[in-house]
């Protein structure tokens, strides 16, 4: 464990809590992509199956359980409790365009051709693009609520901090996972445009709106 990984995990946790709080406090999931959230639940489910097969640490187990539970909690709020507020007209990104190629790639490019490893690889690849429906939704509506933009900033920062963690681990532990690093870089690059808008607008007290 190093400081980059720890702050990355905290940013990830913070993002999830921010999203749950936004939905709970405003009693609305308007502006949130249900498709991105469904894919995040799929990401956590397929990645953390090793909860059953391996014990790493109390921290690792606890965080994994929190991430799985919160992702399904978010789906419950979006699709059951506050279903009426779900903005499905703007959530039109086709999930199969991501899930099918990612599934194919995880069979072709992985560290080991075993069920758990393929599912882990699938989750790494899927996570890298799972935010696209959310970003697409913002580009369609042309704006995001401030709390939603804080959520996205925390969520994007998490993988950027993981990149620093991988640099650290490469130099100090000789650890290098090409699949995680490439997917993590792709994931972070997808946020760059959003990061720019967030810093130039939200940090100056304005709402996140897209240039016309």
């Amino acid at each position: 464990m190093n400081v980059f990984r720890l702050t990355g995990d905290i940013a990830h946790l913070l993002a999830i809590i921010l999203l749950l709080m936004k939905i709970w406090k405003t009693r609305s999931c308007a502006g949130v992509s249900g498709k991105s959230q469904m894919m995040f639940a799929l990401v956590f489910t397929t990645r953390y199956l090793d909860l059953i097969t391996n014990f790493i640490s109390l921290y690792n187990t606890t965080m994994k359980m929190i991430f799985i539970a919160s992702s399904y909690g978010t789906l419950y709020l979006m699709f059951l409790k506050f279903r009426a507020t779900y903005d499905s007209n703007h959530d039109t990104f086709r999930m199969e365009f991501l899930v099918v190629p990612v599934a194919g790639l995880s069979f072709l490019v992985n560290h080991d051709f075993s069920p758990l490893e393929i599912l882990w690889t699938f989750s790494i690849y899927l996570e890298s693009v799972a935010i696209l429906p959310q970003l697409f939704m913002i580009s369609k509506t042309g704006e995001a609520e401030t709390i939603t933009s804080h959520y996205l900033f925390a969520l994007g920062s998490y993988r950027a901090l993981y990149i620093l963690n991988w640099v650290y681990r490469f130099y100090f532990e000789g650890f290098f996972d090409l699949i995680a690093v490439v997917a993590g870089c792709v994931q972070t690059v997808l946020y760059c445009d959003f990061f720019y808008l967030y810093i130039t607008k939200v940090w100056k007290g304005k709402k996140l709106t897209l240039p016309a």
């Binding site: 990984r5 995990d9 391996n54 690792n60 490893e117 993981y162 000789g174 650890f175 290098f176 996972d177």
Partner: peptide, 10 residues
């Protein structure tokens, strides 16, 4: 250089 099959990262 190794990529571990035991995943300690989240």
């Amino acid at each position: 250089l190794r990529a571990s099959l035991i995943k300690d990262e989240l």
